[in-house]
Amino acid sequence: MVSHHPYRTFRTTVARITPLSPNFTRITLAGDDLVHFGTDGLDQRIKLIIPFADGTITDVGQFDENQSMGEWYKRWRGLPDEQRNPIRTYTIRAPRPDDREIDVDFVLHGTEGPASAWASRAQLGDPLFVVGPNSRSAERAGGIEWKPGDARSLLIAGDETAAPAICSIVESLPADAVGEVCIEVPTAADALPLAAPDGVRVRWLPRGAVGHGIRLSAAVHEWGRERARVPALTAAAPSASAPALSDPDPDEVLWEVPDAVTGGEYAWLAGEAGTITALRRHLVRDLGIDRRSIAFMGYWRQGRAEAS
């Protein structure tokens, strides 16, 4: 019996390019191997291996079925800069393995970052390597952090980098879901169509000339004030068994997700690390929400490039 690794590299090419708004574009990637792309969507993380300007991607054994991702990744890290293709983390907007396609939504923020630069100049037929879950593996690949359990009240908050994951999550919610969704985006025209259950309020927050994270923080604080007026949703002080909240090391990856939710509330926060850190601190210290009910993910950090 052949053993398959939980992650594999998929050869894809650009099949469609769909502008969504001034700052979002959807790129549909196609490839025969995507029939084995194993995910249910949600906030499924993937890695994109970005081609150089001439379309080339250095072979480090990505397609060797006998090697794990860790093995070829180690070789990739040892390459000289001029041979090491950038690798960036994204989330799936929509998987369609039966059609051998996936959609990835990109935030276009200039050409300084390799992923945005690639998406800005992408043409039909351009190659892209995608590292994602392998449906043929008996092991779970992971990469999905949305785990609300049976929480009855939801808070989902993030900036434009989290918008694709948030949209996928919201579209998956059951009809009786109740909660608040706050998405900060660059402009009002970046608010995307999104079908949500009747009990879930979706707020698109155009940033305009205001500093990054300010609109998002204000919306979450407003949600906290409204929550305080609903006694059933106001949490008691965290139990003595709850781990204490300390400020994270700014040089570390800011990522903490609960394996199992405690209590009736669940918060999913993703985006710029400084903003998300402050929001989690507010939820825990000011509102009394158990940190074990908060998924907290620093997708990026102001002033720093993503570490591959």
Rank of each mutant, 00 (worst) to 15 (best):
H4Y: 15
H5W: 14
Y7G: 01
R11C: 03
T18R: 15
P19E: 07
P19M: 08
S21Q: 11
P22E: 07
F24R: 05
F24N: 02
T25S: 09
T25R: 13
T25N: 02
R26L: 08
R26C: 06
R26M: 04
L29K: 01
L29T: 02
L34S: 01
L34V: 03
H36N: 15
F37L: 14
F37K: 01
G38P: 02
T39P: 03
D43N: 06
Q44I: 06
Q44F: 05
I46Q: 02
K47G: 00
K47V: 02
I49W: 01
P51N: 08
P51Y: 08
P51S: 06
F52G: 09
A53E: 15
D54Y: 02
G55L: 04
T56F: 05
I57P: 03
G61L: 00
F63Y: 08
D64R: 15
E65R: 13
Q67A: 14
G70V: 03
G70T: 04
W72M: 00
W76H: 15
G78K: 11
G78D: 14
G78L: 11
P86F: 00
P86W: 01
R88H: 03
Y90T: 02
R93W: 13
A94Y: 15
A94R: 15
P97H: 04
I102E: 10
D103F: 08
V107I: 10
G110K: 04
G110M: 05
G113H: 06
P114N: 07
P114A: 07
P114Y: 07
A115Q: 02
S116V: 01
S120C: 06
Q123C: 08
Q123H: 09
P127I: 13
L128I: 12
R136Y: 02
R136L: 11
R136S: 02
S137H: 07
R140D: 11
W146Q: 05
K147I: 08
P148Y: 12
D150L: 11
L154G: 01
I156C: 09
G158Y: 06
D159K: 04
T161F: 10
A162F: 07
P164K: 13
E171G: 13
E171P: 09
S172M: 11
L173T: 05
L173R: 10
V178W: 11
C182F: 15
I183L: 15
V185M: 13
P186G: 04
A188D: 14
A189W: 12
D190M: 08
L192R: 14
P193S: 11
V200C: 09
R201P: 05
L205H: 10
L205T: 08
P206K: 11
P206I: 09
V210T: 15
H212R: 15
G213D: 07
I214H: 15
R215V: 05
R215Q: 12
A218V: 07
A219S: 13
H221L: 12
R227A: 06
V230N: 09
L233R: 10
T234C: 09
A237C: 06
A240F: 13
S241R: 12
P243F: 13
A244N: 09
S246A: 12
S246P: 00
S246Q: 12
P248Q: 05
D251I: 03
W255P: 01
V257C: 12
D259V: 10
V261D: 02
V261H: 08
E265Y: 10
A267W: 03
G271F: 03
A273P: 00
T275Y: 04
A278N: 15
R281N: 07
L283F: 04
I289A: 02
D290Y: 06
A295D: 00
A295E: 00
A295M: 05
M297N: 06
M297Q: 07
Y299K: 00
W300Y: 06
